[in-house]
Design a protein around this nucleic acid. Structure first.
Lengths: 211, 211
DNA sequence: TGCTCAAAGGGCAATCTTGCACAATGGGAA
DNA sequence: TTCCCATTGTGCAAGATTGCCCTTTGAGCA
């Protein structure tokens, strides 16, 4: 499966990346209500028209900064292509596979951003729909990849169900109830990564044992 | 005189800047014959087609890196507009004015690059025409600015002659015979700047006293 | 001599970005 | 309430960049 990643695509992605990053920075510095679209475009060095070509509103840009950047933003096919052939042993269950994929997919920085966004959304509820959309992107990603990996092993509908369950167990993270499961106030970023892995282990533990 | 410096112009300039800079770096690292146009475009992150839209060959890009970057590349009208109103006292002679303009125009980094280019052109004679063209740009700049400043003071033809003389007295610098005038091997960049000022003082001293 | 191939030049259409104009929206002040 | 104005959304044309393709050039080699 050949993914053409030419200069044009790279630069288009870089544009979205710069805009989303500027939006996220501004949200951190001034809060979601402390800036307008033109502030984003000015900081990123693009026109307002270009912003509208990529995002529908500043909330979308702020949230998409979590996935729309550099090596972290790839189509499912690319993620799949980048997967080492021996990354997933044949004896791994689909649940193991999904957990493994998530650990590779969600970097420490992504998880930190996500937690920040969730915190922000407490004061700015307009953010929440876009966070949910972000999760949906992850769901579709997982669905596509699992379907591809499932060829001849298990039916595609099973992969879809699994991806849906993943979406579901991520919701408590959005709701903030991960604090029930985990020690609060993680400090360093390595700790953040561990925290996410702990969360994954816990949530997938429940899934694995059938709750 | 309103100079419109919109986003589009800024980015076009930034493109030329990035390409010229990459070309200069490559020339330093590998020598003029050690790289091809595609090396430049790859380093700068632009296509070969875009390179051809800005420069006719790599030599031109290498040389133009001296003036085609950031705040140093401005149209004469912009340079004039950026000039503080009190920068040139009314009693200054046209020759004083031109000397003052050159000191403002040629930064230490530009002078250092120029000397490097002259050194390179000893081994790569194809560079020399483009260095001369660079001087011609400075001549036209000075001509335009002097003509503007001369309104009602002295005839325009006098400004043209003066700019031409400036072009002429810069030539020994190209020929390397500034070593006759100046102590060789300047070390720090501040010294480079002083060296250029010394050269200017000497050359304009001759001009001022009628040789 | 003629052949080969990397490098460069350039035409062309597609794509991305921009500038501009104008309409729609919505909140605050008179 | 009405008016004003900042913000936003969008259609359109122009400019910038890219990808593709072909031709030309020139150096190296048989």
């Amino acid at each position: 499966m050949m993914i053409k990643q030419n200069l044009r695509d790279l630069k288009k992605e870089a544009t979205a990346h710069a805009l989303a990053d500027a939006a996220y920075e501004l949200a951190l510095e001034r809060g979601l209500d402390g800036f307008v679209v033109d502030d984003i475009t000015q900081r990123a060095g693009y026109s307002r028209r270009t912003f509208a070509n990529h995002f529908s509103c500043k909330e979308e840009a702020v949230v998409m900064s979590t996935v729309t950047f550099k090596e972290n933003h790839k189509a499912p096919e690319q993620l799949l292509a980048a997967l080492p052939p021996d990354a997933i042993p044949p004896e791994a269950t689909p649940l193991d596979t999904l957990q493994h994929l998530l650990k590779m997919r969600i970097t420490a920085e992504m998880f930190r951003k996500l937690r920040t966004l969730v915190t922000m959304s407490k004061e700015s509820p307009t953010l929440e729909p876009y966070i949910l959309i972000l999760l949906r992107k992850l769901q579709f990603e997982a669905q596509t990849i699992l379907s591809e990996l499932s060829r001849g092993r298990y039916p595609e509908s099973y992969a879809h169900l699994l991806a849906g369950a993943m979406y579901g167990v991520m919701l408590p993270l959005i709701d903030g109830s991960l604090s029930v499961l985990l020690p609060d106030e993680p400090a360093a970023e390595a700790t953040d990564a561990m925290t996410f892995e702990q969360y994954l282990d816990t949530a997938f533990g429940y899934l694995r044992q059938g709750f």
